[in-house]
């Protein structure tokens, strides 16, 4: 692994943590708006961002009051969905289309988080899925234009 990739990955993870802890008012629980989740879109530019995002989720969840569950399910959620997106990007060209797919996949796989909350607190599964998925969908959908705007200035593909 290139030294630059290691350094950039570490910093991306730190950025994820800083943004989710400072900007998002509710980053944990049944109704979540974790702004940093829009970083998930970075995966469509370069699959090397994978570890940066997963580590970011891991460290953020270490801060979570329900860390015991979040560390396992939250991280699994990111790993599974990002892998699915990487797989999908093989067949889909165009960053916007890929981001749309990424959004749909992340929204759908929020069932993992709903399952976690069901296990931890006995929340009703489908209702919780609806609420957590709504938050995730909003952040990722609104995140598409934001990430495109960022990419115009930064060119994510070559940064890592």
């Amino acid at each position: 692994m290139k030294t630059k990739t290691i350094a950039v990955t570490g910093v991306i993870a730190a950025l994820y943590v800083a943004v989710s802890l400072l900007v998002a008012p509710f980053a944990f629980g049944a109704v979540q708006f974790r702004i940093a989740e829009m970083f998930n879109h970075l995966i469509v530019f370069n699959k090397k961002y994978f570890f940066g995002i997963v580590l970011g989720v891991f460290i953020t969840n270490m801060f979570s009051p329900m860390a015991a569950y979040d560390l396992i399910f939250g991280v699994a959620h990111s790993i599974i969905t990002l892998s699915l997106t990487i797989l999908a990007t093989k067949y889909v060209k165009g960053n916007i289309a890929r981001m749309v797919i990424n959004t749909v996949l992340f929204t759908f796989t929020m069932c993992i988080i709903a399952f976690e909350l069901m296990l931890a607190l006995d929340f009703p599964f489908f209702y919780t899925w609806l609420t957590v998925a709504a938050g995730e969908f909003t952040v990722l959908a609104v995140g598409i234009p934001i990430i495109i705007a960022l990419d115009k200035r930064l060119n994510f593909k070559t940064l890592i």
Binding site: T9, V11, I12, A13, A18, G52, F58, I59
Partner: peptide, 9 residues
């Protein structure tokens, strides 16, 4: 990477 990220948070 995790150490780097903890240092930069």
């Amino acid at each position: 990477m995790m150490s780097i990220s903890l240092r930069f948070i």
